[in-house]
Simulated scan of single mutants.
Amino acid sequence: MAVFRFMTSPALFALLLSILLHAGAFLAAKPKSDPIYGIEVVKEYPHDPEAFTQGLLYTANSTLYESTGLYGNSSVRRVALETGKVELIHRMPDAYFGEGMTLFDDRLLQVTWKTTTGFIYKKKTLNKIGRFTHQMLDGWGLATDGKIIFGSDGSSTLYHIDPHTFKVIAKHVVKYKGVEVPNLNELEYINGEVWANVWQTDCIARISSKDGSMLGWIYLPSLRKELLAAGNT
């Protein structure tokens, strides 16, 4: 479940290579031989501090689409990047906890926590136009390369999902040096890779979209330190 630690900040959050994540500690050591990368925050934008962000994607015209969680407060939103203004919102039934979301064609696809139920929305209006049942154990993250859907359920498994039938067509257990990487969370598809933030850590895993092999890490303790220094909890 993609919970961002800086959701209660004074209306600012970092837009970081189209990915947002929360903090913790995953790598006890950083072997010099492994591809481990740092980050640079190049700009910050205002954002609703009450939004329990779960899925986030950027489209043209400085527009964000966002899925928020919490029972009784879950929603799908269209947000102006530069101002943080919520331009359009669809509030979900109280029984659902919104999770990861992606855009396939002109449809927003969203999964929900602790269920195998997902919802389909029109991009333009955010009207709900359908629902689907997926075969993951839970609904955490979604991303797409425009052909298939990539999904996560909080385990170490990366799923390939047919975007029309929502059936699993392949799945890969993600491992780092032979050890499974658990808690794969919100997903992004970037240049042939799936990037997954690892829940409650300072890490983004860079994963091959073809076979689930590990390609490297993005390590973000500096981001957490900056947020804490700014008074965020």
Rank of each mutant, 00 (worst) to 15 (best):
R206T: 07
P10M: 09
W195E: 03
H47M: 13
L21N: 11
P31W: 02
F4E: 12
A196V: 10
Q135T: 08
L16A: 08
G146Y: 04
G130P: 01
T201K: 12
L228C: 03
N185G: 03
S62M: 06
D34V: 08
R77I: 00
T144A: 08
W195K: 07
L103V: 02
G146I: 06
K32P: 03
K124E: 11
S156M: 07
E44T: 15
F132V: 02
K43W: 10
D94K: 12
K114I: 04
A80K: 13
D48P: 05
F52H: 11
N73C: 12
S209N: 05
G72H: 01
T8H: 10
E186Q: 01
T68E: 12
T8N: 15
L187T: 03
N183H: 11
T83E: 09
L21G: 12
I204P: 00
T144F: 03
F166W: 01
A230F: 04
G98I: 11
L137W: 05
I39K: 13
W217Y: 04
G24D: 09
K32L: 14
Q110A: 02
V181H: 08
T116L: 03
A25E: 13
L220R: 05
L70R: 14
L223N: 13
E99R: 08
T115G: 06
I204T: 04
S9H: 11
S33H: 15
I207M: 00
L21A: 15
L109N: 01
L20E: 14
C203I: 14
V173W: 13
V3N: 06
G231K: 07
S62V: 05
H160E: 01
S62W: 10
T165P: 08
L56I: 12
G55L: 09
Y45A: 11
F104L: 12
P163G: 14
R91E: 10
R131C: 07
L21V: 09
Y58C: 15
P49Y: 13
S74E: 02
F166G: 11
E40A: 13
G24Q: 12
A205Q: 10
T201E: 10
K43G: 05
Y58E: 11
N61T: 12
V111C: 12
S18M: 02
G212T: 04
K147H: 14
R206P: 06
F6Y: 13
I39V: 14
L215V: 07
N73G: 11
E44K: 10
E44D: 15
V76P: 03
T117W: 02
R224I: 14
F150K: 04
D202G: 00
I207K: 08
K167T: 15
V79R: 06
F97E: 00
G84Y: 07
Y176C: 13
T133E: 12
H164K: 15
N185E: 01
T53F: 06
D162Y: 04
S156K: 09
T116W: 01
S208N: 05
V194Y: 01
T112N: 07
Y58I: 15
H47K: 02
V194F: 00
S209R: 02
E82R: 04
K128L: 02
K175T: 03
W113P: 00
Y65D: 08
P31A: 06
D106I: 01
L223W: 07
T53N: 11
T63C: 06
Y96T: 10
A23L: 03
I36T: 00
H134F: 09
L109S: 01
E180K: 10
H134M: 05
V79A: 11
A60C: 00
A51L: 09
A95W: 12
